[in-house]
């Protein structure tokens, strides 16, 4: 078995075009301008992962929502599950930066990326 494909690395603005060839001998990557590109390509052809970010409602805060991001990237087919888990959540102010807001979705948790103080 031998497959050739082209990927765009999404790790930095360089957006390198990666030429990936998959065979019994393994995965060969060319076109990367740094070592991270090889890791990315291997991950992308075996189990592509993404960070997911969203906002959820907050009661009694100086801003009406808090923004969240996954603490580590999740498999692409989990993105919808993460979004569903956050859809109807409503939190109470205050919320600290980095606070874990939702635990155990698709092997990750969602942490706050914005501080919400109690409204004065």
């Amino acid at each position: 078995m031998h497959t050739e494909l082209e990927l765009t690395c999404i790790l930095c603005p360089m957006s390198c075009t990666l030429k990936v060839s998959i065979s019994d001998a393994g995965i060969d990557v060319r076109g990367n301008q740094c070592a991270k590109g090889v890791e990315y390509a291997k991950q992308e052809v075996t189990n592509p992962v993404r960070h997911v970010m969203t906002v959820v409602r907050v009661r009694g805060g100086d801003i009406p929502t808090v923004s969240l991001i996954t603490s580590k990237p999740v498999p692409k087919n989990c993105i919808e599950r993460v979004m569903e888990a956050t859809a109807y959540v409503e939190l109470e102010a205050p919320i600290e930066l980095g606070q874990v807001v939702i635990k155990d979705v698709c092997g990750t948790s969602l942490v706050a990326t914005r501080r919400v103080r109690k409204a004065t």
């Binding site: 765009t8 690395c9 999404i10 790790l11 930095c12 603005p13 957006s15 075009t17 993404r50 692409k76 993105i79």
Partner: peptide, 12 residues
């Protein structure tokens, strides 16, 4: 925009 954004924002 950047190709990385075409990939992760549209194609995904």
């Amino acid at each position: 925009g950047l190709m990385r954004n075409v990939v992760q924002c549209l194609r995904d």
